[in-house]
Structures are given as C-alpha cells and as structure tokens.
C-alpha cells in the first residue's frame, strides 16, 4: 500500500434505510494534505465525512457497503475499535458545540475520557499546548475557568478544534466549520487549518468554493451522492475535467 495515502475509500455505497445517499465513491485522501469536498447541499458530503469515523453508526438503520481504510486498516471490520477510531479521527461540526462546561474542562474532556494524562500538571500542559495550536491561548488564558458559552462564535469553533486536537488525532474531519462564522472569524479558522495541515490530515466540507480554493491541496466534487471529480485543487478550479464540475464552479447551479 501507498504510504502517502491516509484514508482510502473503495466503492462505498451508503444507505439511510432504503434511501441510498452515496453511490460507488472511490477516493484516496493523502497524508498531511487538506482535502476539500464541495457540492450542492444534500449531495452527500456530510454523509461521506461521517462515514470516515463511523459517526453514521449512531443513526439507526444506516448501512455502508464497500471499504473504508485508515492506514490500510479496514475501518468497518469487526475487529476495529470504534472508540479508538474516533479518537484517531477527530471531527469538527458545522455548529460549534462546546460542552456547557468551563473552557479548561472542554479541552481537558478528551484526554480525561481517554485516560491520557496521569496528573493535573500534565493536563495543564496539554490544555495550554492545544489551545496554543488552536490559536486561542492568548484570548482565553485569563479565563480558563469561565464557561465556554461566554466565548464568541468564532472562538467557540476554535475551542472545538482545540478540544479535538487534545486527544492527539491523526485526521481532522471538518463539516463546514466556518459556515456559521463572520468573515474575520472565518479567516482565523482558515489560517488555523493552514497551520494544522503540517501535522494532521484534514478533510474539510465546504459550500464556499473560494474557501476550498484557498485552503485545500486537493478537492472532490460531489453531486447526487456520487464523487464526480477528484483532482488537485488548482486543476479542478481552473480546468475541470467534467461538465458538471464546470457548471457547478461557474455557478450555474447549487
């Protein structure tokens, strides 16, 4: 297998009950790349993303056919430890959802449940480190004990990123992480993504094509549950190979 490939999906079909949401999706997501997924809403981007860390298991009656591999390992095999999988593959949601706890407790939650830290001092170090990597430390260092709900929307989303980073994941899945944010906060999150890709493999769903063009190395275009085109971002936006892709990026639908 290819060392450059972090996640590989082979002829994946996904069903919500009898309704099929993904059709024969094949994709290879490269290590330490930012991979963007674009497409009109309802085309299956979130479904695809949530299939990667088996978040869809939580919805009763869903089923995946085909194969999803993380470092060559079958994600859906019965020997896969789903809890560990989700620890390794972190997720950032569209609506920022910090727990109604203090800022500190939010970041410390993951390490705590995963039993990563031996003592409080170690935990303090981790919390500071992750808040720094999420570019939030300077803004919150004086109010770690305050409720996370007191933060602004953009800060909350970066806190969620910090929370995800604290369990030392390998992959970050982001489902429209900036869609609910103002332009300044969006810019901060994008900057952060750019920083993070040095260490993490990132898959980001966005409905904003400029954003995809700005942050990603490779881009996939989804339409009606199919991966229509997958290419280097620059190529996909300047010289799309498929007619549907061109129609979409030139704004003819969606």
């Amino acid at each position: 297998m290819d060392d450059q490939i972090k996640i590989s999906v082979k002829s994946a079909n996904f069903f919500y009950g009898s309704q099929q949401a993904l059709h024969e999706v094949n994709i290879s997501i490269r290590r330490c790349f930012v991979t963007a997924l674009i497409g009109p809403s309802g085309c299956g981007k979130s479904t695809f993303l949530r299939a990667l860390n088996r978040m869809n298991d939580l919805i009763p009656g869903t089923r995946l056919e085909g194969r999803v591999e993380l470092d060559g390992q079958d994600v859906y095999s019965s020997s896969m430890d789903v809890i560990q999988l989700r620890r390794r593959v972190g997720m950032i949601f569209q609506r920022s959802n910090p727990f109604p706890m203090s800022i500190y407790e939010n970041v410390a939650y993951g390490p705590r449940v995963n039993g990563l830290m031996k003592n409080r001092a170690e935990l303090d170090v981790t919390v500071e480190k992750t808040l720094r990597s999420a570019a939030l430390w300077d803004e919150v260092k004086d109010r770690l004990a305050r409720s996370a709900m007191s933060l602004s929307g953009g800060q909350q989303q970066r806190l969620c990123i910090a929370r995800a980073l604290a369990v030392e994941p390998e992959v970050l899945l982001m489902d429209e992480p900036a869609s609910a944010l103002d332009p300044i906060s969006t810019a901060k999150v994008e900057e952060l993504i750019y920083e993070l890709k040095r260490t993490y493999t990132i898959v980001i769903v966005t409905h904003n094509m400029q954003q995809a063009a700005r942050v990603s190395d490779e881009t996939g275009f989804f339409l009606n549950g199919r991966l229509v085109e997958f290419a280097e971002t620059k190529k996909l936006f300047t010289a799309p190979a498929k007619r549907e892709t061109e129609d979409y990026i030139t704004g003819r639908f969606g």
């Binding site: 450059q4 020997s79 560990q84 493999t201």
Partner: peptide, 27 residues
C-alpha cells in the same frame, strides 16, 4: 496490512509510519 487485534493495529501503524515520508503523521 490488516489490523488483527486492536493492540496489534496500533503498534503496526506506529511501525509503518516510521518509513521516511514528507507528510509526517503524528502517530
């Protein structure tokens, strides 16, 4: 490679990753 047990899988990943790679992974 296949992950046979959870423990084996974790270790296996660690070894495999030590191959030289431009895109270093934090594992």
């Amino acid at each position: 490679m296949k992950g046979n047990s959870r423990i084996g899988a974790e270790n296996g990943v660690g070894k495999m990753e030590s191959a030289p790679s431009r895109h270093a992974d934090n594992t």
